[in-house]
């Protein structure tokens, strides 16, 4: 069970992971559109107040995944001692986005809008003054905690996917993973800005 949660890529890669991953990415876009959530960066997720059109949500999901796949594949070509397949890199990275779907579901179901408005008003001097109840504060804290745990899970899955599909481990693996992820994050943010 632990292996399937943290490293399913020992068992799944190639076409199976790509098809499953594309289904996950499509479902994530649908949930994000319904729940007013923006995936405005490779590892970013923000809950908005305005509706997110399905096409925008789908484009954001696709840009995030493609940026991650492209830059991890380039890192693999540079650092891997093996002959790697783009199918494995893109497929496993698509599957590694499963936690985003869960997180989008959690954010859509639990409403912490009032607390977010209060934080914006208090710290960013935007919007109107609102007073969240204790329950709303509790919901917001719970969402924040769940989001942190899920995002850590996603990063672990992304690293395992990169490590297995590109056969890179150890210090070289961690450093090249961080580098490729940062580049993917920056480029995806720039591209999503054009939407």
């Amino acid at each position: 069970m632990k292996k399937w949660l943290l490293n399913p890529f020992d068992f799944i890669a190639g076409w199976t992971s790509l098809i499953a991953g594309v289904v996950i990415i499509s479902l994530t876009a649908l949930v994000c559109s319904l729940g007013s959530i923006h995936l405005d960066g490779a590892i970013d997720m923000h809950h908005g107040t305005e509706a997110v059109p399905l096409a925008t949500a789908f484009a954001e999901s696709l840009i995030d995944w493609l940026c991650i796949g492209i830059f991890f594949y380039i890192a693999g070509l540079i650092f891997s001692p093996s002959s790697i397949r783009p199918l494995d890199v893109f497929g496993t990275q698509a599957l590694a986005r499963f936690p985003v779907l869960i997180n989008a579901g959690v954010l859509s179901l639990i409403n912490a809008e009032k607390t977010e408005q209060y934080i914006e008003w208090k710290f960013m001097h935007k919007g109107e003054a609102v007073e969240p109840s204790n329950f709303e504060w509790f919901s917001w804290v719970m969402i924040a905690l769940v989001t942190i745990v899920i995002m850590i899970w996603m990063i672990v899955l992304m690293y395992r996917a990169y490590s297995v599909s590109c056969n890179i481990r150890g210090t070289k693996g961690v450093l090249s993973f961080i580098g490729a992820l940062l580049v993917a994050e920056i480029i995806s943010k720039i591209l999503i800005n054009f939407l």
Binding site: D10, F11, A13, G14, S82, S83, D88, N167
Partner: peptide
């Protein structure tokens, strides 16, 4: 082996090394 393609390829590469 009921394993993924890259896992088997990585194992083979380790043996070659």
């Amino acid at each position: 082996m009921k394993l993924s393609y890259p896992t088997v390829r990585n194992h083979l590469d380790e043996i070659i090394d």
